[in-house]
Amino acid sequence: MTVVLEKSNIPKLTEALSRQYLVVDYEKDKTALSVKGYFLAPREKLFSFFSKTKKLSVRSSPKRKLLLFGLDLADIEALGQLDEIMTKPREDYFYLRKRRNSLIVGVVEHSITMPVATGDLILEKINPSQYRAVSLTKAGQEIVKNKFFKKEKNPEILIYPEEKSNLRELAQDSELLAEAVSWARVKNHPIWEKLEKICLGCGICAYVCPICHCFSMEDEIEIDGSASHRCRYWDACVLNNFSRVAGGKNFRPALKNRYFNWFYHKFVRAYKEYDNSQCVGCGRCQKYCPAEIDIEKVLSEIIRDYEKSLSAPTG
């Protein structure tokens, strides 16, 4: 038996779900930003401290369960990585508190060929009018009990190949990426100089990335001094002051260093930490970079030269 959902019933389903959950129809309202902001907000208050009473309060988060509807496979994969990053080696309270109060429903417009490890329910397109529902968790099973889901013995199952994305393919080979990016630093590949001249150092690549998670903290004070709030906000490692310490020393003074560090983190340090490159090939940084830096071309160039160096005679 296959559990199926008629495509035409999707709006009714999300409407029904919104009686129980805070539903964000991510497929409908897709923006430049990924879903990471629902768990690691662009700016959020973590604590408030009241001067008079000297009371410290941990800021509360919404009680109502959040249901994110319509993520594609790349975004689901990215969220799975972010979950791991925020759990290991030590738990990030504020991220996990929100994440554990959420449900993820993926909508995949092609046939799934690999197991999906993150999310609660996946809707996979099987023919022009139907999706197959695969629940991955108990919460997913609950959703499937909804009247819009039907059990069918032999639904028509067509094969929809995934739209080919070079970047997504590149991102899969995390071992090669780790080797190539490391090599490009050791050999002082000219690409870093080249990128330094083009990159505006604006940090948009990190903000739109579904996995980039660097942040800073600062205190906000009420105008009457009655309370201060410890806030955390998105930072970006290409920004000038990212590694600057009190007294003025900046450990990455040149944009070249910072840009390289962004790559190094994504493709080398991440690979050593989590066995993955922190890129799922979603293409957002490619699309939104105001200087039109194309991560796919950059990676391809590095890999091409790295592979050339391997086949070149040594000595």
């Binding site: 998670h213 600057r244 450990f251």
Partner: peptide, 24 residues
């Protein structure tokens, strides 16, 4: 080593140097 620190638990990325986190 000295580095900028924000979280102290290996998340915020400020103290990263090469493969290492100065805080962890």
């Amino acid at each position: 080593e000295e580095r900028k620190m924000q979280c102290g638990i290996g998340k915020c990325q400020h103290c990263a140097t090469g493969e290492k986190y100065v805080c962890l």
